[in-house]
């Protein structure tokens, strides 16, 4: 086994951090590392915390870390913030709320820039979680970038998804819209000491009351929190526990994780093809002939694309 993989499995902090960098930069050796670690994964429980910017996600994560540490669980956190589309730089500021745990050996917090990936996470967040999983962290929390209406990726990457919302974001039709409102296993209405919380809770309740369900459907609880004052955090953790029990029954967790694996394989294929296509196009189009031909209507985008695809023999 390669040395880095061995050290990661033994829980060495520096190696875990290095390993995440390797996969985040897609360095040579990234795939090999993940291949070696794969059979050591699967023990951790993955929780997604998502919601609009400034809704209190990081503050909630901070309190959840504390609670799970009280239960002697090792906690890993992957906190994603947006990268600049202009400079590629980023301010990764989620740690500000969590720094009290920096020196706790049972907590590993890593900030990630989204690096152009849309959907609420970074391209490599799931693989970073594999590293933490293999290193023995019991709970791994994904904190997404502040999201809007359509960033639902996290739900396909974790076991339990918590949507953190706040009062006053809009009327009942907003709640009814497709997208992020559909992915919550648990609704956490944060800043519940603010005006409008009752209405927010009622509207979410109405949304759920018109949802089609049978006896096997998990009814997402709607919880009220004031995360900064640690109010409602224990209830949230207990709701996560209940959702986990629900998933454990009737092999639902197995099915969910199998679906996730299928999508991981799909993503690896897509990402490699994407890389290939970019490199191939850069080479071809820089020669200029195709581009000029396209522009002058001597050929068309489909014909050019199909010629490239033939090289792949698929």
């Amino acid at each position: 086994m390669n040395e880095l993989a061995g050290k990661i499995i033994s829980g060495d902090i520096r190696s875990i951090a290095r390993g995440i960098t390797v996969i985040e930069n897609d360095d040579a050796g990234s795939a090999l590392l993940l291949k070696e670690l794969y059979r050591h994964t699967g023990q951790a429980y993955l929780i997604g915390i998502t919601g609009p910017p400034g809704g209190g996600k990081s503050t909630l994560v901070d309190k959840l870390i504390k609670l799970y540490r009280g239960q002697k669980k090792k906690v890993g956190v992957l906190a994603v913030d947006p990268s600049s589309p202009f400079s590629g730089g980023a301010i990764l500021g989620d740690r500000v709320r969590m720094q009290q745990h920096a020196t706790d050996g049972g907590v590993f917090i890593r900030s990630m820039g989204s690096r152009g990936h849309l959907g609420g996470l970074a391209l490599s967040t799931s693989d970073a979680a594999k590293i933490l999983d293999a290193a023995g962290y019991d709970i791994i929390i994904f904190e997404t970038v502040g999201i809007g209406q359509s960033e639902v990726e996290v739900a396909g990457r974790v076991d339990t998804t918590v949507l953190v919302t706040v009062p006053g974001l809009g009327d009942d039709v907003q709640v009814l819209k497709a997208g992020t409102m559909e992915i919550a296993d648990i609704f956490a209405v944060n800043k519940a000491d603010r005006e409008g919380v009752e209405r927010c809770v009622i509207e979410l309740g109405q949304l759920l009351s018109i949802k089609e369900m049978d006896q096997s459907t998990f009814l997402p609880p709607i919880l009220q929190l004031v995360a900064k004052d640690n109010i409602g955090v224990a209830e949230l953790a207990s709701a996560v526990g209940k959702h986990r029990e629900y998933l454990m029954a009737d092999n639902r967790l197995d099915q969910k994780r199998k679906a996730r694996l299928k999508s991981e394989v799909h993503n690896i294929i897509i990402n490699r093809l994407d890389k290939w296509a970019r490199a191939r196009l850069t080479r071809e189009m820089e020669a200029g002939e195709d581009l000029e031909g396209l522009y002058q209507k001597r050929t068309d985008p489909y014909t050019v694309a199909e010629r490239f695809i033939k090289e792949l023999q698929i």
């Binding site: 990268s83 730089g89 301010i91 990764l92 500021g93 900030s111």
Partner: peptide, 9 residues
């Protein structure tokens, strides 16, 4: 950030 670095604050 504007110079393209990832800054952990």
């Amino acid at each position: 950030r504007d110079a393209g670095f990832e800054v952990i604050y």
